[in-house]
Design a binder for these strands. Structure first.
Length: 691
DNA sequence: GCATTCTGTATTTTT
DNA sequence: TACAGAATGC
């Protein structure tokens, strides 16, 4: 098989895929066949007799991990690949904590807090510590804590006042038996520092390591991977400094330099041949990114043809823009028979997606969105998950507070106060306090309150027992949702927006379904509540539901498009203050380069057709704002651009004439005498057909 | 304790 | 526009 590679890989790719010893740095330009190289390399490792269990491949998203696994399976159909580890950094951190977390004082059933949980906890602590006088923007504080944990920031003068809160936050996490996202990376490093045996366990286990999207690893992630690799030094990292778009999350191009320093004996391979885009698109992308000073020199080239010009469209407003995109997709899909899943519509921010969705729905174009709020983060889904979390780990105060009166069960402000007070007095969790109240050990409380609290206590206990019994969990959850009358609660809560209610119903049932799917999956070796909750903490929508649908347009943020490619790409709202985003310009020069890289990533997703649009006005917070085109447009070579005229619909007279001509071509006389094409698309299609 | 109304704010990108 | 949190009334 190894020799077979040489015919499908170019010489650089071949060298990258077959160099199995020692550190390897692959600088892989956009569309240079990076994923192919990685999967080939893993297959080569496998075929050379290296045990699967000693191979670790780290990817950036779950989706990428799944795709990679799929491709490896294609190459190795005969083999069972269960022992192969292909996962994200966070999933790796989780695995490590599950195995050795007890050394750091975590119980087995720890749960993972996402941003929302984290912010609620911070809010709660601010209340407890009476810090309300300080700036209590939990959003900012949460970001600060992340920056501190990942060593992006250190305690300087102006943030000293949050130090106590930060310490309390961490103490509390441990008390609640909970970790946050940053902990998944930071704690394993800490573990390895304090317990060398755990480190050598993993150093011996993972003797061959690969890291994809290396330009987007954070310094802490790099630290983790370096610890693992430093002994056997068989580490291969693949990345492209021009596509580094996650510096706000701690990613740093510096890591490439660090890698060069830490592994001086490395071999470096550059992949510069692009197999994805037509030449015009590539030249435009090259000329844009050349404006960045801070980069490794590299120039993508292609053997492919020039292809079309890059089309630019300047609609009046965002509605016209959306219609333009929808019309064009429709028309290209029909005239050139391009399947809908070959269209990518990219935007800078999530809120730009809605108007496009509406246009697609108007034109009856099926679409799929990725990025944006994950299924598991929707409010009603989170509510039900909060129940599961409490069942799994009753000490999880944050989630307990979330569900204790949702749906309302008469445990209001007063009752909550006495619960929290009792908890403080006995220095125990809220749930234990509830137990004390329910079992009448805590006397000073009114009976009606005790009754409400008591029945909640019984509910949790009863269902905790049921769901941990080892029998199927989904029916238990189903019955829980029914017994708390969650459906009625949603109906009441959302009676104003009629569509919401259906949607919500769908989401809640979707969650139960997802649980059923999870526990009935034969490939799932260790089902169980804890594993399920961990899984969904790290997963997002695409990971759980619909797979690559053949007939859907892909609508997503530019960030979410990384690693993907489409025959036709539309980039919407290529406007000043959106690309580059206004908030990125607030702090410093470097950010404009990242925004440029982001636009570069967007451009290089396109294979043969690329459309940019910039509306003259755009509604923002209900107000119409005048906009300007993005300054990045001026960085593209002018001769490669075409300003797109609006498609003029044919007049009814013309349409009639076309239809008459068309009738003459038909062997049978149609039953209709006139035809009145209403949509531009149809009319133009008709015109096209007749010539 | 709960529902309704009013007010302010918008906070980019995601594991 | 859209959503959360506070304030008010039952």
């Amino acid at each position: 098989m190894t020799n077979h590679f040489s015919t499908v890989l170019n010489s650089q790719q071949y060298e990258a895929a077959t160099t199995l010893e020692g550190p390897l740095l692959i600088i892989a330009g956009a569309g240079s066949g990076k994923t192919r190289v990685i999967t080939h390399r893993i297959s080569t490792l496998i075929n050379s007799g290296i045990p699967l269990s000693s191979i670790l491949a780290v990817t950036f998203t779950n989706k990428a991990a799944r795709e990679m696994m799929g491709r490896i399976r294609l190459f190795n159909q005969r083999k069972k690949l269960n022992d192969l580890t292909v996962c994200t950094f966070h999933a790796l951190g989780l695995k490590i904590l599950i195995k050795f977390g007890d050394l750091l004082g975590f119980k087995r059933n720890f749960s993972i807090y996402d941003q929302t949980d984290k912010q609620s906890l911070i809010k709660e602590l601010i209340r407890e510590l009476n810090l309300e006088s300080e700036s209590t923007d939990t959003w900012q504080i949460s970001a600060l804590f992340s920056a501190i944990k990942t060593s992006l920031k250190s305690w300087n003068e102006d943030i000293q006042q949050y130090r106590a809160l930060f310490n309390e936050y961490n103490t509390r996490l441990k008390l609640l038996n909970v970790v946050d996202f940053d902990d998944l990376i930071v704690l394993p490093v800490k573990l390895f520092d304090s317990f060398p045996d755990s480190l050598s366990y993993y150093q011996n286990k993972f003797q061959h390591i690969m890291v994809d999207e290396f330009q987007d690893t954070s310094s802490r992630q790099y630290e983790l991977i370096k610890l693992l690799a430093v002994e056997h030094r068989s580490i291969c990292v693949v990345g492209d400094d021009d596509q580094s778009i996650y510096s706000w999350r701690g990613a740093s191009i510096e890591n490439i330099a660090k890698f060069e320093r830490d592994f001086p004996e490395r071999l470096e391979i550059k992949l510069e041949q692009n197999y994805r885009s037509m030449r015009n698109i590539l030249i435009a992308a090259n000329s844009l990114i050349a404006n960045n000073k801070n980069r490794k020199r590299k120039e993508l080239w292609t053997k492919g043809g020039d292809g079309d010009h890059i089309q630019i469209f300047f609609p009046e407003d965002e509605r016209q823009e959306a219609d333009f995109i929808a019309d064009h997709i429709h028309s290209l899909a029909i005239r050139q028979r391009i399947p809908l899943n070959q269209f990518g519509v990219l935007v800078r921010t999530n809120n730009l997606m809605r108007i496009l969705e509406e246009a697609f729905r108007r034109e009856n174009l099926p679409y799929r969105v990725s990025g944006g709020l994950s299924f598991f983060q929707r409010k009603e889904v989170k509510d039900i998950i909060a129940y599961l979390r409490v069942l799994a780990n009753p000490d999880d105060n944050t989630n307990l507070l979330r569900i204790i009166n949702t749906p309302r069960r008469g445990i209001g402000k007063k009752a909550l106060e006495s619960i929290i007070e009792t908890a403080e007095k006995n220095s125990c969790s809220h749930f234990s306090a509830i137990a004390l109240i329910a079992e009448k050990e805590q006397t000073a409380i009114n009976e009606k309150m005790r009754e409400s609290i008591g029945s909640f206590y019984n509910l949790i206990n009863q269902y905790r027992e049921k769901i941990l019994s080892g029998r199927k969990m989904a029916p238990v959850l189903q019955s829980l949702v029914e017994i708390i009358e969650y459906r009625a609660f949603l109906f009441q809560e959302y009676q104003k927006s009629a569509t919401a209610k259906l949607k919500y119903d769908y989401n809640v049932l979707g969650l139960i379904e997802s649980l059923a799917y999870y526990e009935n999956d034969p490939d799932n070796l260790e089902p169980g509540l804890f594993n399920y909750l961990n899984m969904i903490s790290l997963a997002n929508q695409e990971d759980s539901t619909e797979e690559n649908d053949q007939h859907k347009i892909n609508l997503m943020t530019i960030h979410a498009s990384k690693g993907l490619e489409f025959e036709v790409v539309f980039i919407a709202a290529v406007e000043k203050d959106i690309i580059p985003h206004i908030r990125s310009q607030e702090s410093g020069e470097m950010n404009i380069e990242e925004e440029r890289r982001l636009f570069y990533v967007a451009l290089t997703r396109a294979m043969s057709k690329l459309y940019l649009s910039a509306a003259a006005t755009r509604k923002k917070h209900g107000k119409v704002i005048e906009t300007e085109p993005s300054p990045f447009i001026a960085e593209l070579p002018e001769e490669l651009l075409r300003i797109q005229e609006k498609e003029v619909p044919v007049t009814p007279d013309q349409a009639d004439r076309y239809f008459d001509d068309l009738k003459k071509l038909l062997p049978v006389k149609p039953r209709f005498d006139t035809y009145w094409p209403k949509s531009t698309v149809l009319a133009n299609f008709l015109a096209d057909l007749i010539g």
